[in-house]
C-alpha cells in the first residue's frame, strides 16, 4: 500500500447513527417473533414418502384403479364358482342314480359267470 492509499485509508468513515441501533434491533427482534412456528416433525413413514408425494399418490391411485377394474370384470369361471355347491350336489345325486340303475340292469340280464378253478380251465383248453 503506497502513501496515497494509506492517506485514503486513514480517512475515517462516518459513524453509524446511534439512534438506529434501537430501531434496527427492535425490527430484527420482531422478525423472530413473527417467524412462523416450525412445522411439527412428520412421522417416519411420511418422512420417507415425502420427497415424492405426487409420485406416491399416483402409484396409489393406479393400484385403486387396477383393483376396481379387477373387481368389476367377471372372470370366466365366475358363474360356476358362484353356484358351485348346488351344482356339485345335484351332480353327485345324478351319478348315484345312474350307477344304481346300471347295476340293477346288469343284475337282471347276465348273471355273473362263476369263475372255475385253474385246473378245470386247463381241461377245457385240452378238450378244445
Amino acid at each position: 500500500m503506497n502513501e496515497f492509499e494509506k492517506r485514503i485509508a486513514e480517512t475515517p468513515p462516518r459513524r453509524v447513527p446511534a439512534a438506529w441501533r434501537q430501531d434496527i434491533l427492535a425490527a430484527a427482534r420482531s422478525e423472530i417473533a413473527t417467524e412462523p412456528a416450525p412445522r411439527p416433525a412428520r412421522p417416519g413413514w411420511l418422512e420417507w414418502l415425502w420427497p415424492r408425494p405426487v409420485a406416491w399418490g399416483a402409484l396409489a391411485a393406479a393400484w385403486v384403479v387396477i383393483f376396481a377394474l379387477h373387481a368389476a370384470t367377471p372372470s370366466p369361471s365366475g358363474s360356476q364358482t358362484a353356484s358351485a355347491p348346488g351344482n356339485t350336489l345335484s351332480l353327485i345325486v345324478k351319478r348315484q342314480q345312474e350307477l344304481t340303475s346300471l347295476l340293477a340292469t346288469a343284475n337282471e340280464t347276465t348273471p355273473p359267470k362263476a369263475v372255475s378253478p385253474r385246473s378245470e380251465r386247463r381241461r377245457d383248453i385240452n378238450a378244445a
Binding site: P13, R15, W20, A28
Partner: peptide, 30 residues
C-alpha cells in the same frame, strides 16, 4: 454495524437506503 454502515453508505450513496439495508441485514440474520 459500523463496518456494514460504512460499506453500504459507500455503495448506495444514500443514507435512507443504507438504513433500510442495514435493517434488512439484521432482520435476515434474525
Amino acid at each position: 454495524a459500523q463496518a456494514l454502515f460504512a460499506f453500504l453508505l459507500n455503495l448506495t450513496r444514500n443514507e435512507a437506503d443504507t438504513r433500510d439495508l442495514l435493517q434488512e441485514v439484521f432482520c435476515k440474520i434474525a
